[in-house]
């Protein structure tokens, strides 16, 4: 008999919420601090757009299309934060302290158990903010996306989440061999910094290698760029190719990171009691 994954997922969500409500001061502070970061980001770009019409000449990323992009980045990052961030941060500790033992005893998929145990409910504040920003920005665009583009937008947001999650679980898995992996979150932050900008700005002798590396080697540039293009302007043939590639890349990333995760579990050596 297989476990009822949906029921377990619901229990995780419920327990996390009860836990966050227990420490309501901390919960409110988390909401305020992540919203402040978002407001600062928005403020910075508002200042930038006081001085220029678009990011990079001829890129098409004017003020409102770019805010669609910003909202998309926020959606993806907040969803990753909501579902996975706390769990991935804890994974390294579980491995180092041997507390991963208990996860390996349960008759349920271990990756599912470790990836979704705790939800970070405060990051939903950013999701709400992103939805408002997206609605306002779309209202200012001349281009109106079709319903199909709307559906595909959701699909590619999920692909973006899958790409970032795969990267996270792969980084977390490495902890089994490293023993200690405290730079996981830092590395994550550095690398996802590159995904927050339109890929057109990565041009020239420094930009092109970065664009190629973060499109084909570690495809994090696809995370926000593909869904944002779907809503920001009419989709062109080269965008479809990129979207197809993003879809395949996220599937490959999920499969590869799962294999790495299970390889790591086979090498897990626990810790002395």
């Amino acid at each position: 008999m297989h476990p009822n994954y949906f029921a377990v997922f619901r229990e995780f969500a419920r327990n996390s919420l009860v836990r966050e409500m227990t420490f309501r001061g901390n919960f409110l502070l988390d909401c305020v601090s992540s919203l402040s970061w978002v407001f600062m980001q928005l403020g910075l770009y508002l200042v930038i757009f006081e001085h220029t019409d678009q990011l990079g000449s001829g890129t098409g990323w004017g003020r409102w299309p770019f805010f669609v992009f910003l909202a998309t980045t926020l959606f993806v990052n907040s969803l990753v934060q909501f579902f996975f961030m706390t769990n991935m941060e804890e994974l390294s500790d579980l491995i180092r302290t041997g507390n991963l033992d208990f996860a390996l005893l349960k008759p349920i998929d271990t990756q599912f158990l470790l990836s979704l145990r705790k939800f970070e409910w405060s990051s939903l504040a950013n999701v709400v903010f992103a939805a408002i920003l997206l609605a306002v920005s779309l209202g200012h665009l001349e281009f109106r996306p079709t319903p199909l583009q709307g559906v595909l937008y959701v699909v590619f947001i999920l692909c973006g989440v899958a790409l970032l999650y795969s990267l996270m679980i792969a980084l977390g898995s490495v902890s089994v061999w490293l023993g200690r992996n405290e730079s996981l979150y830092d590395f994550w932050f550095y690398i996802t910094n590159f995904s927050r900008y339109p890929m057109e700005i990565y041009e020239g002798p420094f930009g092109t290698p970065l664009r190629l590396a973060f499109t084909f080697a570690v495809p994090i540039l696809l995370v926000a760029n593909v869904p944002a293009r779907l809503l920001a302007w009419p989709f062109e043939s080269q965008d479809w190719r990129l979207a197809g590639y993003a879809f395949v890349a996220s599937l490959v990333a999920l499969v590869a990171s799962r294999k790495l995760f299970y390889k790591a579990l086979a090498a897990y050596r626990s810790a002395s009691s």
């Binding site: 476990p3 009822n4 327990n15 009860v18």
Partner: peptide
């Protein structure tokens, strides 16, 4: 067990995991 929650919440989670 979940450190910050009453044990009964962890028990309910076990109920779902073990069906």
């Amino acid at each position: 067990l979940w450190w910050d929650l009453p044990a009964q919440e962890s028990f309910r989670l076990h109920q779902q995991i073990y069906r």
